[in-house]
Amino acid sequence: MDMLQTGKFIAKLRKEQGLTQEQLGEKLGVTNKTVSRWETGTYLPPADVLLSMSELFDVSVNELLSGRRLTEQEYKKAAEENLTQVIKASSFSLKDKIDFYKKKWLKEHMAVIIFTCICIIGALAAGVIFKKSLLAFAAVVMFILGHCLINNAMMTYVEKNAYDGSGER
Rank of each mutant, 00 (worst) to 15 (best):
V30F: 12
S93N: 07
H109M: 04
I129N: 12
E63C: 05
A123N: 10
L56K: 05
A111F: 02
G67Q: 10
E55P: 01
T31A: 06
W105L: 11
F137L: 13
V86P: 00
G25T: 03
A138Y: 07
G127H: 09
I150G: 15
L135Q: 11
L44W: 06
L51Y: 10
N152T: 12
T34A: 06
R37Y: 09
N151Y: 14
F100D: 00
D58H: 15
M53E: 02
G146R: 05
E74A: 13
G25P: 01
A47R: 12
Q85F: 11
L135Y: 11
C117Q: 08
L28E: 02
I120G: 03
L149H: 13
M155Q: 11
E74W: 04
T6R: 09
A47N: 10
R37D: 13
E16D: 15
G167P: 04
L50K: 03
T20D: 03
K97M: 11
L65R: 14
G165F: 05
V86G: 03
M155D: 04
G29W: 09
Y157Q: 09
L64Y: 05
K97C: 07
G18A: 03
Q17G: 06
A123C: 06
C117L: 14
A89T: 05
M53R: 08
A78Q: 10
T31R: 10
Y101D: 03
T34H: 07
H109I: 02
L94M: 13
H147S: 11
M1S: 01
E108K: 14
E22M: 08
N152R: 12
Y101P: 03
E80I: 01
H109S: 06
C148D: 11
E159K: 14
W38K: 09
D99K: 11
V141G: 07
D58S: 12
E26F: 07
V128G: 02
E159L: 04
W105H: 15
S52C: 06
S36P: 03
K107I: 00
L24Y: 07
I121N: 06
R68D: 01
M110G: 00
S66D: 02
P46E: 11
V141P: 05
R14K: 02
L24K: 11
I150Y: 14
V49N: 08
Q17K: 15
L149N: 13
F9K: 14
V86N: 04
D164F: 07
I113Y: 12
F137Q: 14
T34L: 00
A79V: 00
E63P: 04
L83V: 00
Q85V: 06
L149F: 14
S91K: 15
K12W: 00
T156L: 07
S52R: 15
L70D: 04
P45G: 04
L28D: 04
R169S: 05
L50Y: 03
D58N: 14
T42Y: 10
L24S: 13
K88L: 09
A79F: 01
K27A: 08
G127V: 05
S93L: 02
L4M: 14
T40Q: 03
